[in-house]
Amino acid sequence: MKKGYEGRDVDLVRMLKKQDNIVDNCYEKAIVYLKEKCDVESVLVARHLERIGDILCKIGSGLIFIESGKRTIIK
């Protein structure tokens, strides 16, 4: 693990990736569950929540760039 200012960026990227993976997994489970119920509104809500998670990762990447000048991609 890196120390100092750079270490903080590495920890933030790991945390954002972990959170995004949790949201993605919830989305996949919701789609499988809702597929059987044919509930279009709930599918759209799940889709938009997953998209919000992706946008938050982009915002986090932008903040890291602003603070450190390093480009990171969080997927």
Score class of each variant (00 low, 15 high):
residue 4 G to F: 03
residue 6 E to Q: 12
residue 4 G to V: 07
residue 65 F to V: 06
residue 20 D to K: 13
residue 12 L to C: 09
residue 71 R to K: 15
residue 75 K to L: 07
residue 10 V to L: 04
residue 4 G to S: 05
residue 25 N to I: 09
residue 61 S to Q: 10
residue 67 E to K: 12
residue 4 G to N: 09
residue 2 K to P: 06
residue 74 I to S: 00
residue 31 I to Y: 03
residue 17 K to Y: 02
residue 67 E to G: 01
residue 48 H to V: 08
residue 28 E to A: 09
residue 19 Q to V: 13
residue 22 I to D: 08
residue 44 L to I: 11
residue 9 D to K: 15
residue 40 V to R: 07
residue 1 M to N: 08
residue 65 F to D: 06
residue 29 K to T: 13
residue 68 S to M: 03
residue 55 I to M: 13
residue 22 I to S: 00
residue 71 R to T: 13
residue 64 I to C: 08
residue 45 V to A: 11
residue 26 C to D: 04
residue 45 V to Q: 06
residue 40 V to A: 10
residue 60 G to H: 02
residue 70 K to A: 03
residue 29 K to W: 00
residue 24 D to K: 14
residue 41 E to A: 13
residue 52 I to C: 05
residue 4 G to I: 06
residue 61 S to L: 03
residue 69 G to T: 13
residue 75 K to N: 12
residue 46 A to Y: 01
residue 50 E to H: 07
residue 4 G to A: 04
residue 60 G to Q: 05
residue 11 D to T: 11
residue 2 K to L: 12
residue 4 G to R: 14
residue 60 G to A: 12
residue 18 K to D: 15
residue 67 E to W: 09
residue 55 I to Y: 12
residue 12 L to H: 04
residue 50 E to K: 13
residue 69 G to D: 09
residue 33 Y to C: 11
residue 16 L to V: 15
residue 21 N to L: 08
residue 42 S to K: 15
residue 15 M to L: 13
residue 39 D to T: 07
residue 31 I to K: 13
residue 58 K to Y: 11
residue 2 K to G: 05
residue 47 R to C: 04
residue 58 K to M: 13
residue 75 K to Q: 12
residue 35 K to H: 03
residue 55 I to E: 05
residue 17 K to W: 02
residue 35 K to F: 02
residue 48 H to Y: 13
residue 28 E to D: 11
residue 24 D to W: 00
residue 64 I to Q: 03
residue 43 V to R: 06
residue 65 F to Q: 12
residue 37 K to P: 05
residue 58 K to F: 09
residue 33 Y to M: 15
residue 10 V to Y: 02
residue 70 K to G: 04
residue 41 E to C: 05
residue 1 M to W: 07
residue 29 K to C: 10
residue 54 D to E: 06
residue 21 N to G: 02
residue 49 L to I: 14
residue 57 C to W: 00
residue 21 N to T: 11
residue 47 R to P: 00
residue 62 G to Y: 09
residue 54 D to T: 08
residue 50 E to A: 01
residue 7 G to M: 10
residue 57 C to K: 04
residue 64 I to W: 03
residue 57 C to S: 14
residue 69 G to M: 11
residue 42 S to W: 06
residue 49 L to P: 00
residue 58 K to T: 08
residue 60 G to F: 01
residue 28 E to P: 01
residue 42 S to A: 15
residue 52 I to N: 02
residue 36 E to S: 13
residue 64 I to G: 10
residue 48 H to G: 01
residue 38 C to S: 14
residue 51 R to K: 15
residue 61 S to V: 04
residue 51 R to Y: 03
residue 67 E to N: 11
